[in-house]
């Protein structure tokens, strides 16, 4: 085996500034896209259940398209396709000392819109899991739909949404690699640039794989903690089995999770 161990250790343990910037961008993209995606997903979920037919159909169409096309295609479409078609071009936006490049904006938009479609289905499933009796009781004390959703149903739906949401963030951390194709200097593109300069593919890809593994593993720990806090007393007892619990949990929510 031809593996330059000193090279590997150097890049693993002493990341350059460019590498750390790439890592930071990956994290920022993941967190912002997941947050926006969840918020938009809530709107889409509620819209999908609306009594107003145009809104309901529009949301179903949106969810169908975003879940039915590959994320990579969406990213290139939104950044390059729209610009090439003269429809919209993402320009750099300057906010004081910080400039947000056009491709980063486009990457965020694509990741968020895509995530929102998946979150919409997850949230819809979560809302359906809440006992309908809760809605009936809320109605019978005079609550309007909006009030009962906000005060009674959504808070209880959160319990069902948290585990799949955790899995979605795991996927998001890895999906950010796809925006490398529009030139966003996140962790993978930074690695690829380094590879082309040094030709050490095996070592550098091993390093970046370990970085992603570390990120997703750390998130996994956080995720278990959050699930414990949100769980019912019965779930909290089960959560003690740790790894096994997380495996079965992710198998059940696997249906709504996409591959990265």
């Amino acid at each position: 085996m031809n593996f330059d161990w000193p090279f590997f250790w150097h890049y693993l343990l002493r990341p350059s500034t460019a590498y750390l910037n790439g890592l930071m961008l990956t994290l920022v993209l993941s967190v912002v896209a997941q947050t926006l995606g969840t918020a938009l997903g809530l709107f889409a979920a509620l819209g999908r259940m609306s009594r107003m037919a145009p809104l309901r159909l529009a949301m179903r169409g949106y969810i169908w398209i975003m879940r039915g096309t590959p994320l990579l295609v969406q990213i290139v479409f939104i950044y390059t396709g729209l610009a090439a078609g003269g429809i919209y071009r993402f320009e750099d936006v300057s906010l004081g000392i910080l400039t947000i490049p056009g491709n980063v904006q486009a990457g965020l938009v694509a990741l968020s819109l895509n995530e929102a479609a998946y979150m919409a289905e997850i949230i819809r499933a979560g809302i359906s899991s809440v006992d309908p009796g809760q809605t009936e009781a809320a109605k019978s004390v005079g609550m309007t739909y909006a009030l009962l959703m906000r005060r009674i149903v959504l808070p209880q739906a959160a319990r069902f949404v948290v585990p799949p949401l955790g899995n979605e963030f795991n996927a998001m951390l890895k999906n950010t690699t796809l925006v490398s194709v529009i030139g966003v200097p996140e962790l993978l593109l930074t690695t690829e640039t380094l590879t082309s300069a040094t030709f050490r593919v095996f070592e550098l890809y091993s390093v970046v794989a370990l970085y992603y593994l570390t990120l997703t593993t750390l998130w996994g720990v956080v995720q278990s903690r959050i699930e414990l806090r949100f769980g019912e007393p019965s779930q909290q007892a089960k959560a003690g089995s740790g790894f096994g619990e997380r495996f079965f949990g992710s198998v059940l929510s696997g249906a709504v999770r996409k591959k990265a």
């Binding site: 390059t80 610009a83 071009r89 491709n103 690829e192």
Partner: peptide, 20 residues
């Protein structure tokens, strides 16, 4: 200079063409 790195040369050309 803000260097934007693309996987293919044609992607880089296109970026120029559509003003990115």
């Amino acid at each position: 200079a803000d260097v934007v790195v693309y996987p293919k040369d044609t992607d880089a050309l296109q970026a120029l063409q559509i003003g990115q």
